[in-house]
Nucleic acid binder design. Structure first.
Lengths: 226, 226
DNA sequence: AAACCGGGTTAATGATCGGTTAATCGCCTG
DNA sequence: CAGGCGATTAACCGATCATTAACCCGGTTT
């Protein structure tokens, strides 16, 4: 479990880090909103612990911004003041849970567990390939951060290619993946789906290997401008 | 604070009772689901501690029933088994929190405090999604600030979708959320409820993902962006 | 106790979308 | 230059979802 802790108080932060690490979690610590933003861009996290009293920017503002960008990461906020409006504001800004300071480390851990369970399966199996990312559990495909609407067959096709990236998949293999081993198909339906995929993802993602089949193009480039 | 403890193990129950009483809480103790039902009819409680392993009836079943009747009492469930599905089931059945046996009395107390605070602050669990807001504790749905009158099934449906926003929920998953895990349904009742939801909330809230299920549309608040 | 009312379920029908087929075009290869 | 393979396009079909109406049941009122 990868946890991002955003807390400017060094003492509290080190305590959290020690406690969560002892429980087997991987903890990254930042002390400002700017650093948090950078961290979130740099790596994948499972959950975020956010202190509201940050030096450079209001934690709520940061959270609201992240949510607006479509960030789905579960966020637990730490607030020092036990004011009703504080908490309401926090949850309205997109927090999933909150904890009052001072808090019990065990409670924090338990709450993180609960949060993780609640969103279990989200982005855990995320497959990335260049600007493309696919989450089998939520069946969401992102192209450069933007969701792409794929049909059932197109998804199956893309999944097969992603699971075998670099390798060339023959029509027969793709057919097996998309339709199962028993189903018979006597048309070029696969070609049509490949075509649709390319239309939605742009050329350069799916490569044709003449006489053999298809494969994913190299990761990390393609789609220069729309 | 009036606490109802539903626990068949006398030893554990007396421990809880002693511990909570020492903290100034008033504790009633019952050892069966039937007794719990009677107690809830007989008196007002602020929070309930529910053991899942009851002699006469499954605790989850009891909880789901109570929730179906509109009981808003915060419930913390105790489960002996550390199974993910157990806990997820519990939360889906309407539990507000859970604790694994064996547990620390102080942690139980802290969690109850938190639950009570949460209820006292009201609307702390407020879920917002675009122009839509839903408060699970009061079961009030607001659309653009205006209250919307939703039936039981419609509420359950909306709640399930809100708890999994962004993700596609299959008919099966929605069925589980709305009807419980055991109930069978052999019609398109879900579609009808979806239809009703859309009629009340307007189109654009609930999206159809053909072949997969439903999900909430993007939190596209095109209302005045505050 | 009877009538009424509202929500829930069932079932039938209609609309829409994705999937498949098939025909044609274009390009690469031998 | 010819053959073949893949790309592209359009048409058709079927599955799935939406919509509507009727029926059922529990709760409430009279």
């Amino acid at each position: 479990m990868h946890v991002l802790v955003c807390e400017d108080d060094e003492l509290i932060a080190s305590g959290i880090k020690a406690g969560l690490t002892a429980q087997g979690m991987t903890v990254e610590h930042v002390a400002s909103a700017a650093a948090a933003r950078a961290m979130l861009r740099a790596a994948e996290f499972d959950v975020m612990v956010l202190d509201l009293g940050l030096p450079d920017e209001d934690g709520l503002k940061l959270l609201a911004q992240l949510r607006q960008k479509g960030l789905e990461l579960p966020v637990l906020i730490l607030t020092a003041r036990d004011s009703v409006t504080d908490r309401v504001d926090g949850l309205q800004a997109g927090a999933d849970d909150y904890l009052l300071k001072p808090f019990d480390l065990r409670e924090l851990f338990a709450r993180l567990q609960t949060l993780l369970r609640r969103v279990a399966g989200r982005s855990v199996n995320l497959i990335e390939h260049g600007v493309l990312s696919y989450d089998p559990s939520s069946r969401v495909t992102l192209l450069g951060g933007q969701p792409v609407d794929l049909s059932r067959r197109e998804q199956a096709l893309l999944q097969a290619l992603l699971h075998n990236r670099g390798r060339v998949l023959s029509s027969e293999q793709l057919k097996d993946s998309v339709y199962g081993f028993s189903d018979e198909l006597e048309s070029n339906a696969l070609n049509v789906h490949i075509h649709h995929l390319r239309r939605k993802l742009g050329n350069g993602i799916v490569e044709t290997v003449r006489g053999l089949g298809y494969r994913l193009g190299p990761a990390g480039n393609e789609d220069s401008g729309s």
